[in-house]
Computed example of a mutant assay.
Amino acid sequence: MPEIAIAERAGVGADGHPRPTEDHVVVLDNAVLVLDGATSSEPSQPPGGWYAERLARRLAEDLHVAPEADLTEVLTSAIAALTAEHRLQPQRSPSSTVAAVRWLEDRVDALVLADSPVVGFGGFGVDVVSDDRLARLRRRGMLQTGADVRRRRNAHDGFWVAEADPGAAAHSVRRSWPRADVEAVLLASDGVSIGVDQYELFDWREVLAVSRADGPDAVLAAVRTAEKQDPDGERWPRPKRHDDQALVVVDFESGVIQGLP
């Protein structure tokens, strides 16, 4: 069992007021999941945190039963089950990113759907497993309105995310590394990865180094400090001052779980 260190902080809503985090972290015997929920624009639908929590629970149950199952197939099945159980409708339902890491005797597998990256460190260097389709669309100004997001969600000219379309799982970004080559793996929600990708506070090697030296919450604190220095988003335009944050460090050098309640 690797050492697993976890840090989480709630962000604020679009209105700037505190609210419960919509990020969810699950630790299994041989896997870690990070999900970041997004609320539908339909006011009658439950929030993104509701969806992320239930999808995380279903994924955990399925991986507990079949710990070596194909990750894409597990995700497909979980989305389908949740969609049927709650009668969710494509383009009108809450959604969630998915980042998963699973270790077996011979390899470490990673899966990413939407913008919660996984970063592997080892004999292969630094391997960032990321899905940048959302970021590319934002840079091109193609997600200006709620209608834009709905039109491009789970569409071939758009981006893919866990929602009410099980076929989205097939568009996940996957990676497998020989277990003997893996030193550590990070999983992050975009409230953390923004510190690397947009704020450029550190690179991923530095994120790992800070996490090992001071704990992963030190990384979250650095991102929050930068955001407090840019409260109105003038330097770094963003939809809300502070997003939810989740960072998990899976370190294959020892075996203590830190940060769990």
Rank of each mutant, 00 (worst) to 15 (best):
Glu200Val: 09
Glu200Pro: 01
Leu201Asn: 01
Leu201Pro: 03
Leu201Glu: 02
Leu201Arg: 01
Asp203Leu: 07
Asp203Cys: 08
Asp203Ala: 10
Asp203Gly: 13
Arg205Gly: 11
Arg205Ser: 14
Arg205Ala: 15
Glu206Ile: 07
Glu206Ser: 13
Val207His: 02
Leu208Met: 09
Leu208Gly: 00
Leu208His: 02
Leu208Thr: 02
Leu208Gln: 01
Leu208Ala: 02
Ala209Glu: 08
Ala209Ser: 12
Ala209Met: 11
Ala209Gln: 13
Ala209Cys: 08
Val210Pro: 02
Val210Asn: 04
Ser211Pro: 12
Ser211Leu: 06
Arg212Leu: 13
Arg212Ala: 10
Arg212Glu: 05
Ala213Met: 07
Ala213Gln: 12
Ala213Glu: 09
Ala213Val: 07
Asp214Ser: 15
Asp214His: 15
Asp214Met: 13
Gly215His: 08
Gly215Ala: 12
Gly215Tyr: 09
Pro216Phe: 03
Pro216Glu: 05
Pro216Tyr: 03
Asp217His: 15
Asp217Gly: 14
Ala218Gly: 05
Ala218Lys: 04
Ala218Arg: 04
Ala218Pro: 02
Ala218Glu: 05
Ala218Thr: 07
Val219Ile: 11
Val219Arg: 08
Val219Trp: 04
Leu220Val: 05
Leu220Arg: 05
Ala222Lys: 12
Ala222Asp: 13
Val223Gln: 00
Val223Ala: 00
Val223Cys: 00
Arg224Ser: 04
Arg224Met: 06
Arg224His: 10
Thr225Met: 12
Thr225Ile: 11
Thr225Cys: 10
Ala226Pro: 00
Ala226Ile: 01
Glu227Leu: 04
Glu227Met: 03
Glu227Pro: 10
Glu227Gln: 08
Lys228Leu: 15
Gln229Ser: 15
Gln229Arg: 14
Gln229Trp: 05
Asp230Arg: 03
Asp230Val: 07
Pro231Thr: 03
Pro231Glu: 06
Pro231Arg: 05
Pro231Asp: 05
Pro231Gly: 07
Pro231Cys: 08
Asp232Cys: 09
Asp232Arg: 15
Asp232Ile: 03
Asp232Thr: 14
Gly233Ile: 04
Glu234Asn: 11
Glu234Thr: 15
Glu234Ala: 14
Glu234Gln: 14
Arg235Glu: 09
Arg235Asn: 10
Trp236Asn: 05
Trp236His: 09
Trp236Ser: 04
Pro237Trp: 06
Pro237Ser: 03
Pro237Ile: 10
Pro237Asn: 05
Arg238His: 01
Arg238Thr: 00
